[in-house]
Simulated scan of single mutants.
Amino acid sequence: MDRWQAMRIFVKVAETESFADTARQMFMSAPAVTRAVASLEDLIGARLFVRTTRSVKMTEAGARYFDDCRRILADIAEAEAAAGGSYATPTGTLYITASVLFGQMYVLPIVTRYLDTYSTVKAKTLFVDRPVNIVDEGIDVAIRIGHLPDSGLTAVKVGTVRRVMCGSPKYFERYGVPKSPADLKDHRIAASTAAWASPEWRFADDQRVTVEPVLQCNTNEAVIHSAREGWGLTRVLHYQIGPALMAGELQIVLSEYEEPPMPIHILHPEGRHAPAKVRAFVDMASASLRENRLLN
């Protein structure tokens, strides 16, 4: 058995923690899997696994070798794909996630243009206002708003988002314009429970105001609609009211008290080994989002 195949078997055993499961998944006999791992152990002069009747766990040497094997196998797969042309041609199904409104307003137009450009690709979207583990859920690309935790994901910054207070001209004509965050206690507030459900709203210079919304809605669309109708003020991300701002239906107030803007990133898990379908979408989405004046 060649070393490349033995490394593939070793990696699969490490991932499944089972010689029997590896044999079934790779359509091999259990003794063949055992011999492949034993040959690697003889070659490198170290045990790769600690085996008991109930478990298979990597040794310290095995864990180091596992990381190297995955990198080497990924390089081989990349070289083979490049030689065959598939690495350069987007194919397959691209799975993309984003928050609901951002996805509908800004990501979906990019997705449809991407599909028009690459007829060999299909796409699935997951637009939800909840954290998504893109590795566990098989996501190819995620667009995230906010500061990112440390991870092994590749992140490309494409813009920023402001959290803003807004209302309609007819509301301000009737009730006046707040001059400071403290003035919000004298205004009718509509708040979304979909995000930032805390009654304490933070502003620049660590100013904090406890608000008591007269109206609470479970979607951002609902509170934005109430503000457009002149019912009250609301606080949302500024991209969510882009069309209403351009139409003059809403105006931003207290902009001098806003917190620093939050970054927008495109994330994907495969780094430089990403397939063509991912690289092509990331390139197209990065250019499109960076050109959007509402996101910069």
Rank of each mutant, 00 (worst) to 15 (best):
residue 284 M to Y: 03
residue 155 A to L: 07
residue 265 H to K: 01
residue 193 T to H: 09
residue 52 T to I: 09
residue 3 R to I: 14
residue 56 V to R: 05
residue 279 R to P: 02
residue 149 P to K: 06
residue 52 T to Q: 07
residue 79 A to S: 04
residue 228 R to M: 12
residue 234 T to S: 12
residue 196 W to R: 03
residue 6 A to H: 12
residue 294 L to Q: 12
residue 223 V to I: 15
residue 176 G to W: 08
residue 222 A to Y: 00
residue 152 G to Q: 13
residue 267 L to C: 05
residue 184 L to I: 06
residue 201 W to I: 14
residue 15 E to R: 14
residue 127 F to C: 00
residue 242 G to N: 09
residue 74 A to S: 13
residue 149 P to A: 07
residue 166 C to N: 08
residue 21 D to F: 03
residue 182 A to P: 07
residue 15 E to N: 13
residue 103 G to I: 00
residue 18 S to E: 12
residue 123 A to T: 11
residue 59 T to Y: 06
residue 62 G to A: 09
residue 164 V to W: 01
residue 244 A to C: 03
residue 252 I to L: 15
residue 130 R to H: 03
residue 217 C to M: 15
residue 151 S to C: 04
residue 90 P to I: 10
residue 215 L to D: 09
residue 4 W to T: 15
residue 187 H to Q: 07
residue 110 I to P: 01
residue 106 Y to K: 12
residue 247 A to Q: 14
residue 278 V to N: 04
residue 8 R to D: 02
residue 199 P to L: 10
residue 259 E to L: 15
residue 50 V to P: 01
residue 250 L to P: 11
residue 140 D to F: 05
residue 206 D to G: 05
residue 48 L to A: 07
residue 96 I to N: 06
residue 105 M to Y: 03
residue 192 S to Y: 02
residue 257 Y to V: 08
residue 185 K to Y: 10
residue 38 A to C: 07
residue 137 E to I: 00
residue 108 L to Y: 04
residue 215 L to C: 11
residue 136 D to F: 07
residue 296 N to W: 13
residue 97 T to D: 02
residue 242 G to T: 09
residue 244 A to W: 05
residue 4 W to C: 11
residue 184 L to S: 02
residue 30 A to C: 01
residue 41 E to M: 13
residue 107 V to K: 03
residue 91 T to Q: 08
residue 67 D to A: 13
residue 52 T to N: 05
residue 208 R to Q: 15
residue 127 F to L: 00
residue 158 V to R: 05
residue 72 I to R: 10
residue 194 A to R: 12
residue 162 R to N: 13
residue 279 R to W: 01
residue 78 E to D: 02
residue 72 I to M: 13
residue 217 C to F: 14
residue 256 E to W: 13
residue 171 Y to G: 11
residue 95 Y to D: 02
residue 115 L to C: 04
residue 140 D to A: 09
